[in-house]
Amino acid sequence: MRGKHTGMWPNRREALWLTAASVLFGGLDLLVHGMSPPTTGWTGPHAALLLQLSVDVSLLFLARFPVQVASWALAVAVLMLVSEEFAPGLFTPVQPAAHTALPFATPAITTNLVRLTDRRRAFLLIGLLAVLGTRPWHPSWDITPLGVVNTVLPALAALYLHARRELLNSLRERAERAERE
Results as ranks from 00 to 15, higher is better:
F123D: 14
A101G: 12
H46Q: 13
L128Y: 07
A87M: 14
A175Y: 04
P45A: 15
V32W: 15
A155L: 05
V55R: 11
T151I: 01
N150Y: 09
P136G: 07
M35C: 13
L51H: 04
F25A: 00
D56G: 11
A87I: 10
A175I: 03
R180M: 00
L81W: 04
L116C: 00
A105Q: 07
A178Y: 13
R64N: 09
I143L: 03
D56P: 06
A108D: 10
L128N: 09
M35W: 14
L16C: 06
S71C: 12
E85R: 13
L74P: 10
V78A: 15
G27M: 12
V131M: 01
E85D: 14
V78F: 12
W137G: 05
W42F: 14
L31R: 14
A63Y: 01
P66A: 15
A15F: 02
V152W: 11
V76F: 00
R64F: 05
L146N: 05
L153G: 04
T144L: 01
G127V: 09
I143S: 02
P45G: 15
V69D: 00
L81Y: 03
L156W: 03
L128T: 05
G41D: 10
D118L: 08
F61P: 10
L171H: 05
I109H: 06
L24S: 13
T6R: 13
L18E: 03
P136R: 00
M35G: 13
T39G: 14
H5Q: 05
F123H: 11
W141T: 12
T19Q: 02
A101T: 09
T6H: 14
A75V: 14
V152C: 10
P107A: 06
W141Q: 08
V32S: 12
N150E: 09
P66T: 07
A77Y: 06
I143V: 07
A158I: 06
L156C: 00
L31D: 12
H162C: 08
P96N: 04
D29K: 10
S140D: 15
R115A: 11
E176Q: 02
T144V: 08
A178L: 15
R115K: 05
S71A: 15
T6G: 10
P107R: 00
R119A: 14
L161Y: 08
A122K: 02
A70E: 09
V131D: 00
L132W: 04
W141K: 08
A98W: 15
G27F: 09
R172L: 11
R2L: 08
A98T: 12
A87V: 11
A97I: 06
L113P: 00
N112F: 13
T43G: 15
L132D: 07
E14V: 06
H138F: 10
G133E: 02
A101P: 01
L146S: 07
F104K: 04
E166V: 11
V114F: 09
G133A: 09
P38T: 08
R165V: 13
T40W: 10
F91C: 13
G44E: 12
L168W: 11
G133L: 02
P37R: 06
M1R: 10
D29N: 13
L161G: 09
N112P: 03
S140W: 02
P136T: 09
T134A: 12
R121W: 08
